[in-house]
Amino acid sequence: MNLWSYVIRRLLYTIPIILGVCLIIFAIFNLSGYDPAQTLLGKHATAKQIMEVRKELGLEKPLVQQYFDIVKSAFTLDFGRSWATKQNILDMIKEGAVPSLTVTIPAFLISTITAILISILVAFNRGKFIDKYLVVKFVGMMSIPSLAYILFFQWFFAYKLGWFEISGYEHGFPDFIPYTILPVIIMVVLSIGPDVRYFRTVILDDIYQDYVRTARAKGLSETVVLLKHVLKNSLIPIITYVVIQIPFLILGALLIESFFSIPGLGGITVKAVFDNDFPVIKAMTVLFAISYIVFTLITDILYTVVDPRVRLK
């Protein structure tokens, strides 16, 4: 099948998925039974003003009409204004996405590349001291809660040693760099353990395959066996694992953002949930769904690149 027709067909699948996502969030919002007007008006709410605000927010419209409005905003990407802050939601997302990505992208790239390199190293030394040492070390690192890393690193490296900014953020390159180094280091430390464990297993699966034995029997060097044969064959599960993480990068890292005062999307989403700010929750859910679909599609396409045997149907 032609690649483009496959892409178009897969993109068309997003329509029913978005309709479904809208239906689910609309149902959850209505079934929860919270009154956003009450939340908005706070301690001085009166019955009359609650009614007026509900009307202004469009909550007095028939349910079908409300659902249609959600679907419309999902397809036009016009999410209107936040109920809690009255800010334009798309502007909020645009402003929040960059700081989130300045932390998550470097952390993602560094941890993925480092984890792959370490995995190759330990897989080829399976059973030896270095393999055992690193596996034990990473399992140990994984068993410490992420909050402990954040609290300790912030106190020790930023406060005690004064190597990094304690918290804060400045927009624009390169001003943001001093504020993102420590959060990036923590994210790398947090993700490298699980990454190495997974990649090591994937590579080990391949190392004992017949084709590796054949390659060695042909007299190929270990480097060629490793990089040309094993790594290439291990790429499909690695790509799946890596690409599917990308939509989560956009969502930001909630705890890191909170402790380091990074004005990212993680904070926006959580605040919206606490404030019962439905338009923002809706926008974040829809955008996440769309990016998830897009990156799944990219994964599929990448399969055909790394393994010519894979055919898109």
Partner: peptide, 18 residues
């Protein structure tokens, strides 16, 4: 005005004189 949600970084910034 620095918006710092968590108490640890707030207190550390104070102790540093920031």
């Amino acid at each position: 005005v620095n918006i710092i949600r968590e108490s640890q970084p707030r207190m550390l910034q104070f102790k540093k004189g920031k």
